[in-house]
Nucleic acid binder design. Structure first.
Lengths: 244, 244
DNA sequence: CGGTGTTGTGTCGGTACCGACATAACGTTT
DNA sequence: AAACGTTATGTCGGTACCGACACAACACCG
């Protein structure tokens, strides 16, 4: 993960490790389905009853039941409850509840990827703009990014998992692909893990461009420090945020 | 389960508009910097004093001050306060506070992009795995994605802003690129906005692949329904989540 | 027909949080 | 020297939330 430490922050005092995080939610009808609710549903699925689920989670039954009613009012029926019967009854998740959980998990997974992937952030200035897309002048040259309105001094952040590398020789002409940002550079470092490799590419800007590619791609391209490559990334995947 | 309350919501419950959302946070030393804290800092920057800032936000001064102390204990000094003086003093943000705000905004911006961009999710089954990367068999063929351990039935989600399109003719078959997932397909729809275009590509799977590209790229490629294209996306940008 | 363990519903007390308020310290300006 | 509006600190009362508890309804089973 990037740990900040760019653009001269006078970090004289304590250098507290600040970690990005998030909380994923699903909204419907004014109530928000959060991580606790997901845990409740999963516990119900495991335990087979709301009572046991609340117990497992260390929460009170009455609260759990109240919360569940609230959720069902907003998201539709989530559990099929049965009282009486052998063992007194029980509750099982409905298909809708499972879909909700899956949706929640997909969102969480996607956000996790963004929050913890490495990224390179370049200071720059907006020199042109059409609609949401701005052309930004940076140390590495001009690039295009999604930008909020009314800002000229920006940071451009390029997530490492959106950068694709190509051999500088066999690179196809720019016109035939939809990746509008292309930069020639040389590989500075290449750390190959078991299945994933992190590559930094010198493209002229102060922080080198960092790319996250599969180890297999790294092998196929024969990446080595000093090698000439073309790094490209889509403008719809790179974002500018106001600097001031 | 009862759902029996009338008002014909048996179908309305199905179409419950559930909206993904999130809350961005920065953690340090056990305290979490959230949206409220960001608003507080921004209000201080605007008003020039903690007192006026708390007033503007409709919050109590004592609470705001207490919270600020807490934050400074974890993140370092955030405001330069001066009591006495013309007007009684005031508070201004330190460079560290501005850096923190910028970091927060970058994270928020990145997460926003993920949360609200279109995506295509395909059911599939893991058929192979090396480390974090799994090969998944889907309706469109085999693709590679990051996957959590121990799951075979998965959903693969491909975010629209990570899909790049190429002309099917000019695309070198096995070009030396690090985008490992490549699918030939035909354009089904192409909606061109002012600066961004949303394209759906039929690649054999039930939900068509949706790609978000710049309007300029759409023009350059001459995208039209029925056109043959190659859609490619990096495996480090696509994620699999457990389906069961 | 009673036993069983659950769902469904309500009430009560404790706790954590928050806003309101009071007060001291402070230093520049008048 | 007095005035001013801020920072800095503490206390108090209200409120919202939560866990604990009580109790009725239920339906299957021995």
């Amino acid at each position: 993960m990037d740990d900040g430490s760019k653009s001269g922050d006078a970090g004289a005092a304590d250098s507290a490790p600040v970690a990005p995080a998030f909380e994923t939610e699903l909204h419907a009808e004014g109530v928000t389905f959060g991580a606790e609710d997901a845990a409740l549903l999963r516990a119900i699925d495991d335990a087979g009853s709301l009572n046991a689920a609340a117990d497992d989670l260390g929460r009170s039954y009455s609260r759990a039941h109240k919360r569940l009613s609230q959720l069902e009012g907003a998201f539709g029926s989530l559990v099929a409850s049965q009282r009486g019967g052998t063992g007194g009854g029980g509750s099982t998740l409905t298909e809708r509840a499972r879909a909700l959980l899956a949706r929640f998990e997909r969102l969480r997974s996607g956000l996790t990827g963004v929050a913890e992937v490495a990224e390179t952030v370049l200071p720059g200035e907006v020199v042109d703009r059409t609609g949401e897309i701005a052309t930004v002048e940076t140390g590495a040259g001009r690039l295009r990014a999604l930008a909020p309105p009314d800002c000229t001094a920006v940071f451009v952040t390029i997530r490492a998992d959106t950068v694709t590398l190509q051999d500088a020789d066999g690179a196809p002409p720019a016109a035939e692909t939809s990746a509008r940002n292309r930069f020639r550079g040389t590989v500075r470092t290449a750390e190959r893990g078991e299945s994933v490799a992190t590559v930094t590419v010198d493209v002229g800007a102060d922080p080198p461009l960092v790319a996250l590619i599969t180890a297999r791609s790294s092998d196929l391209l024969g990446l080595e420090p000093g090698m000439a490559v073309v790094a490209s990334f889509k403008t719809t995947a790179t974002r500018a945020t106001p600097r001031a």
